[in-house]
């Protein structure tokens, strides 16, 4: 059991981090806070991938004459792509938030939803 925990501690921690991020994304009311949670969530997934690429006694995946074992380069490649995706999503999200703030003078979800609900009632009646 102890072996199980110790041999995979990187994964456990990255899962813990993911869950912290995911919680922030779902539970927080502030729009920017959600995006912060999203960042943590995604970066933790990246940590999970990178941990997967590590090989015991491996060296960095760069050609080296004295190297015996290289680390797995594939997760690195995938994560390079994913980081870019993540930052792009963040940028779009923040741009959206700026627009939302301009329109509603608020970045609190429940306040905005209240305003919207009021508007909807008005158009219906």
């Amino acid at each position: 059991m102890l072996d199980l925990i110790l041999s995979k501690y990187n994964y456990w921690i990255s899962i813990l981090l993911m869950m912290i991020g995911l919680y922030g994304m779902i539970a927080k009311n502030n729009l920017i806070k959600k995006i912060i949670g999203m960042n943590i969530f995604q970066v933790s997934v990246f940590l999970f991938y990178i941990s997967m690429g590590k090989v015991r006694d491996g060296t960095a995946p760069i050609h080296w004459d004295r190297a015996l074992i290289y680390d797995n380069p594939i997760p690195h490649v995938l994560i390079l792509t994913a980081i870019v995706v993540s930052i792009s999503t963040t940028a779009v999200a923040l741009a959206l938030i700026i627009r939302i703030y301009k329109n509603f003078q608020s970045i609190e979800e429940d306040q905005i939803l209240k305003v919207l609900a009021r508007e909807e009632n008005k158009t219906d009646s």
């Binding site: 729009l31 999503t89 999200a93 959206l96 627009r99 905005i112 919207l116």
Partner: peptide, 11 residues
């Protein structure tokens, strides 16, 4: 409303 719709979809 489209802004919030988009944001929710984004999340």
């Amino acid at each position: 409303q489209s802004l919030m719709a988009s944001y929710n979809y984004l999340i």
